[in-house]
């Protein structure tokens, strides 16, 4: 179903950080078609409205979403108790396309909430280690308290995982600084690497530039972009970025396409 939401109920809701919750949704009746990592859903809070949310995990028809409460709808979803009914449409948009990276080194770079759409990708890659070369996961966040999924990192097992924060808190023993600084310690063969990058646009551009400088081909730098997705079906025109309708041609695009578009102001 792409225009009319299907009822789902909140199975679980746990706070992830001070303003961000991870909710698990289970279909009440029919489930939506399977979501691929990188795709997004439109989640409707009854009587409040609908927002695009990337899938942070899928499990037998259940959908996991990590949502930051910054607007009316996202706050309503963060506050939704188990049992609450919500409406869900999807799956929408392009995925990370892990299949196209078979045999290559994988470099996952996440900034802030950008780790949410990358989580199912990391889990999929970690569960099929033979399909890929080395797996690096580099995570940047504002403060240690803003780090997502900390209890899961060890389950991701194999990857080389590095974390840095902008503002350390007392007791923080990890690194401080921008996420691009972590690239120096990651082990990957640039020309045989596919990078997956998600976070604020400034962070995406800085990361992509650093990767290009190291020799990762632009088309193998996959970035997830955000615009104002409204209908998610390509009919409302809100999510245009130049030639792209991001709900249809994105949110995940190759940096070869994204770079010239991100360089134009107010495009």
């Amino acid at each position: 179903m792409t225009a009319v939401p299907l009822p789902y109920r909140v199975l679980d809701n746990r706070p992830e950080t001070a303003d961000t919750h991870t909710i698990v949704l289970r279909p009440v009746g029919t489930a939506l078609p399977p979501f691929s990592p990188g795709q997004f859903a439109m989640v409707y809070a009854f009587g409040v409205g609908e927002i695009p949310v990337s899938v942070a995990g899928t499990h037998h028809g259940d959908l996991t979403h990590t949502i930051r409460g910054v607007g009316a709808v996202s706050r309503a979803l963060c506050a939704a108790r188990p049992g609450t009914r919500v409406g869900v449409r999807g799956p929408f948009g392009t995925g990370w396309d892990l299949e196209a990276a078979v045999g290559r080194d994988l470099l996952v770079v996440a900034g802030g909430l950008g780790l949410a759409p990358l989580r199912p990708l990391v889990r999929a890659a970690a569960s099929q280690p033979r399909d890929h070369g080395r797996l690096n996961v580099l995570i940047g966040a504002r403060t240690p308290g803003d780090l997502l999924y900390r209890e899961e990192w060890q389950d991701w097992g194999r990857p080389y995982c590095q974390v840095t924060v902008d503002q350390p808190a007392p007791g923080w023993r990890g690194r401080v600084g921008v996420v691009t600084a972590l690239l120096d310690q990651a082990a990957f063969a640039p020309h045989r690497t596919t990078a997956f990058v998600c976070g604020p646009e400034v962070m995406i551009r800085a990361t992509a530039r650093a990767l290009l400088h190291r020799g990762v081909p632009a088309r193998h730098i996959r970035v997830s972009l955000e615009r104002n997705m409204h209908c998610a079906t390509g009919h409302c025109g809100h999510c245009q970025l130049g030639p792209l309708l991001l709900c249809r041609d994105g949110p995940v695009v190759g940096y070869d396409r994204a770079e010239p578009l991100l360089a134009v102001r107010e495009l």
Binding site: V4, P5, V86, G87
Partner: peptide, 13 residues
């Protein structure tokens, strides 16, 4: 579309 919430919280769209 229209949506209704039943007394038990059920959602019908």
């Amino acid at each position: 579309w229209t949506a209704d919430r039943g007394p038990d919280g059920e959602l019908t769209v």
